[in-house]
Computed example of a mutant assay.
Amino acid sequence: MVMVPGGGLISYELAGMDVADVRFAVSPVNELTLSLRTFRDPGRYPVHLPWLRRTERVRAGLDLPLLHALTNASMWSPDYLTPRPYAPLTRIDDELAAIARVPLERMLDDLRALHPGELPEPLRGDPAAVRERITTALRAYWHACFAPWWPRMRTVLQADIIHRAQVISAHGLAAMFAGLSERVSLDGGVVRVRLTTNAGYRRSTGGEGLTLVPTLFGRGVTAPISPEEPPLIMYGTRGAGTLWQTETHRSPAALTGLLGATRAGLLTTLATPASSTELAGRLGVTTSAVNQHLRALRDAGLLTSARHGRSVLYLRSELGDALVAGGSAPDPEDRAP
């Protein structure tokens, strides 16, 4: 059962303190499942209110009683709907296909743990039919409310992963884990995660590794409460607050005069990695126009780029940093004599 952050202790013993034992992954179905919390209590997730407003009309045509039943008042969700991703960038079709094949007994165990009393009406009846209804409802929810925005969401998640990798390179694994949340720590080769319930266990990651999954729909850290589940930590991603905003960056006047307003805005924005799709959404311009400007800035040595999965992420180079910093200085002609 995935839960909200808080008091039990889960300990993962890293096999040999090897960086290779820790990996990051993005999971579309995890995001899909965790987003159902926003239905139950939108006020707890103010960042996503613009998205909830934009999708209100299409949500009305979904199987809402079933989707509501997949969380409870404690914001828990069934473990089998938040599976460990086995590739850095999993595909929603593959994950939904796996959910459609989950053993019926496991599904029922998870649903009964979610609702210890009587199951809500949408979850009752023939288990095979319930499993099919859940899969169908999630697939429809994905196409209506996630698919149009998934490239934007995925870019924010990928940018977080790049940041964590940079922290590991510069400061080590312990600093990276500490940066996930105040509830996560690494000491003596053991990763400790503090949660809300009294559930707790200690297990090795040997042979399976520890997967870290950033999420846009988490306010802290979550992990499976069963030691039988593969080692997994989900944590709130950086940059979630910018997800639904159209940003207007005020670039220094000198920089705007040199590069033009759009390129100066892009260079100012790219203090953290982003893709052309994400930048287009944030700045309110077309992706094709953004790509032209990004290529020009990269060719001039002001940006670096790196492929991450199917996306190309851009980041200011050292020269770009210097130019932005220099452009922030006041113009000598504007100074008082």
Rank of each mutant, 00 (worst) to 15 (best):
N72M: 13
M107G: 05
M107V: 09
T82W: 02
L67V: 08
L104I: 06
A97M: 03
L123S: 07
A113F: 07
A100H: 11
A129H: 02
N72G: 05
H68Y: 13
T71D: 02
P122S: 07
L119N: 00
E105F: 09
P116F: 07
Y86M: 04
Y80V: 14
P78N: 07
P78S: 10
Y141S: 12
D109R: 15
Y86K: 01
P83G: 14
L138M: 15
D109W: 08
A87N: 08
A69E: 03
V102C: 06
A98S: 11
A97H: 05
A100K: 13
A113E: 12
P85L: 09
G125L: 00
R106Q: 15
Y141W: 11
L81F: 01
R131T: 04
A129V: 00
H115S: 11
Y86T: 09
L70Y: 05
G117E: 13
V102S: 09
I134K: 02
Y141V: 06
E95S: 01
H115Q: 10
W142E: 11
R112E: 14
L138G: 02
R133E: 12
E118F: 03
L66F: 08
L104Y: 03
E95C: 00
I92Q: 07
L119F: 01
G117Y: 09
P88N: 10
V130N: 01
G117W: 09
L70K: 05
A128I: 04
A73P: 00
D109P: 06
A137G: 12
E118S: 10
P120I: 00
R131D: 08
R131Q: 15
G125N: 00
P85C: 08
R101T: 13
L67I: 02
I92F: 07
L70F: 05
A129I: 00
T135M: 11
P103Y: 01
R133Y: 05
T71K: 02
A140N: 06
P120D: 03
W76A: 13
L111F: 11
A98Q: 11
L138W: 04
P122V: 01
I134W: 01
E118Y: 00
R139M: 12
V102H: 07
R133S: 15
P78A: 14
L96C: 03
A100V: 06
R112L: 11
V102T: 15
D126N: 09
P83L: 13
E132D: 08
P78H: 04
T136V: 04
M107N: 03
W76L: 09
A140G: 06
P83S: 12
P85R: 06
L111S: 12
L67A: 12
